[in-house]
């Protein structure tokens, strides 16, 4: 899932200081799971902003709404009737994708309430870690299911490097060396010989550089 975290409250409050009525839109997908922008977080942000504003002698009107998915036009259409002209500003509590979809669909100025951090999973309740670097050319079959692109600080394909010490990465004693993890896993799988193959330089043209990537599935196109 996409993992995000809320921006500091004062930063959001500063951006909405001119507005009298705001719509706060949550998203029921990834940001609900990572407890950053779901229905509950929408409620807490709305209450916090109302309380902050009330101290200035003015009041803030908030409308709370949580869309099934902000990154899908159909759910924004379902939301269209609540985006009335008296709403001065929309605060999107989705990832960067949701914010852009809302900004594109509606005329109101849309601002993000979250910082989109990473694509990852839950380590324990309240802790999420990055697991995919979106390189566009998955190599997990070669590395025992451990991603060297994002879990190795240098994204090297023929590791480990000299900074691997006692199974940890030199960047921090709490960060495991991805290549140590890969070695251990491949040893357990009995596939250590596969690591003897030298990986050529990765084709990064399938990764982020070169404009927004697009995926087309022609058989489902209408």
């Amino acid at each position: 899932m996409i993992v995000a975290e809320q921006k500091p409250l004062v930063e959001i409050a500063e951006r909405i200081k001119e507005a009298n009525k705001v719509l706060i839109v949550g998203c029921s997908m990834c940001v609900t799971v990572c407890l950053a922008g779901g229905e509950k977080e929408v409620g807490v942000l709305a209450a916090a902003l109302r309380l902050l504003r009330a101290q200035t002698g003015r009041s803030l009107e908030t409308v709370e709404y949580t869309a099934t998915r902000q990154c899908d036009q159909e759910y924004l259409e379902a939301m269209a009737k609540i985006v009335t002209p008296d709403i001065d500003l929309i605060i999107s509590m989705a990832c960067g994708v949701g914010v852009q979809y809302v900004a594109e669909r509606f005329d109101q100025w849309t601002i993000p309430a979250l910082n989109t951090k990473l694509i990852g999973g839950t380590l324990e309740h309240g802790v999420w870690e990055e697991r995919c670097g979106l390189c566009g050319d998955c190599v997990l079959h070669k590395t025992g299911g451990i991603c060297p692109i994002i879990r190795c600080s240098k994204s090297i394909l023929n590791g480990p490097c000299g900074g691997s010490q006692n199974g940890k990465c030199e960047i921090s004693p709490t960060t495991p060396c991805a290549w140590q993890l890969i070695y251990d896993k491949m040893a357990k799988l009995g596939k250590l010989e596969a690591l003897l193959t030298i990986e050529p330089v990765k084709d990064w043209s399938k990764a982020r550089d070169g404009g927004p990537r697009r995926v087309v599935k022609e058989d489902v196109a209408l």
């Binding site: 409620g43 709305a46 209450a47 109302r50 309380l51 504003r53 009330a54 101290q55 002698g57 003015r58 009041s59 803030l60 009107e61 908030t62 409308v63 709370e64 709404y65 949580t66 869309a67 099934t68 759910y75 379902a78 939301m79 609540i82």
Partner: peptide, 19 residues
């Protein structure tokens, strides 16, 4: 409290219409 309750407008919570 620095908050004057008169400056608090009641929360409006809307839900997505089920299709």
């Amino acid at each position: 409290s620095p908050v004057n309750p008169e400056n608090i407008k009641p929360a409006v919570r809307l839900t997505e219409e089920k299709r």
